[in-house]
């Protein structure tokens, strides 16, 4: 190894970009799926029916207690045995991410809704607004402001976690960097570069969150 060679990064930029594309696609799909499922779970957790509440709570406890990596293994190695056909690495990872992140998104959304004072609901109801309108016009806008910073931070964490797909052979950004580094015997350059890229994106994201937080503070 002779010095720090930036050339390799420039030469392999297409491959690295393709990897970043996979990472971002997985992040966006996992957020979309996780948020949707999480919102449904949050509504279930706030249900008046005990059985429904218990179901959602059990889901959350279960999926928060399992390592994400184990879930990815499950959907890549175990579930295909029951199905009788393989699941592509990307798909297996996506399913695992959605199920896993939904548990966290559920809790963020639930605590956001519960952070709105009961008196606000009473005040809305007292003016004659039906419960649905109280939720839409009074509770959810406040809940959303309260939960946006935490939601965004969770999304940033999710983005970092996508590097786990390495284990099921999906060529995400980190995997691409690793492949290039091994191939050209320049792992140092590639690992440093990968760290810089993750840092820049995540730190930039976190800064953005801070600014949003200040702007929308109630």
């Amino acid at each position: 190894m002779s010095g720090f060679d930036l050339g390799v990064i420039i030469r392999s930029l297409p491959l690295l970009l393709e990897g970043m594309g996979v990472s971002l696609l997985l992040t966006v799909l996992a957020i979309a799926g996780g948020l949707s499922l999480g919102a449904v779970l949050a509504v279930l957790r706030l249900s008046r029916l005990r059985a429904v509440r218990t179901f959602a709570a059990t889901y959350v406890v279960l999926f928060r207690s399992l390592p994400l990596l184990l879930l990815i293994f499950w959907f890549y190695f175990l579930i295909p045995l029951f199905l009788g056909h393989p699941i592509a690495g990307f798909d297996a990872a996506l399913i695992a991410f959605v199920l896993f992140e939904a548990a966290f998104f559920c809790e963020i959304i639930r605590s956001g809704i519960q952070s709105v004072r009961q008196g606000q609901i009473m005040a809305g109801l007292a003016t004659g607004l039906p419960y649905g309108a109280v939720m839409r016009a009074i509770v959810l806008p406040q809940a959303f402001r309260n939960m946006v910073p935490v939601l965004l931070l969770q999304c940033i964490n999710l983005f970092k976690s996508t590097s786990l797909v390495y284990v099921v052979g999906v060529r995400d950004f980190l995997t691409a960097a690793e492949i290039v580094g091994t191939r050209d015997h320049q792992l140092t350059e590639l690992y440093v570069f990968a760290a810089l890229v993750y840092f820049t994106l995540c730190f930039g994201g976190a800064r953005l969150v801070k600014r949003l937080e200040r702007r929308y503070a109630l």
Partner: peptide
């Protein structure tokens, strides 16, 4: 219909409960 009834009765609370947004 409670919403209909409540629409005809005004109420003021101890903690004001204005909508902060």
């Amino acid at each position: 219909s409670l919403p209909k009834l409540r629409a005809r009765i005004g109420m003021v609370f101890q903690n004001f409960e204005l909508y902060p947004h």
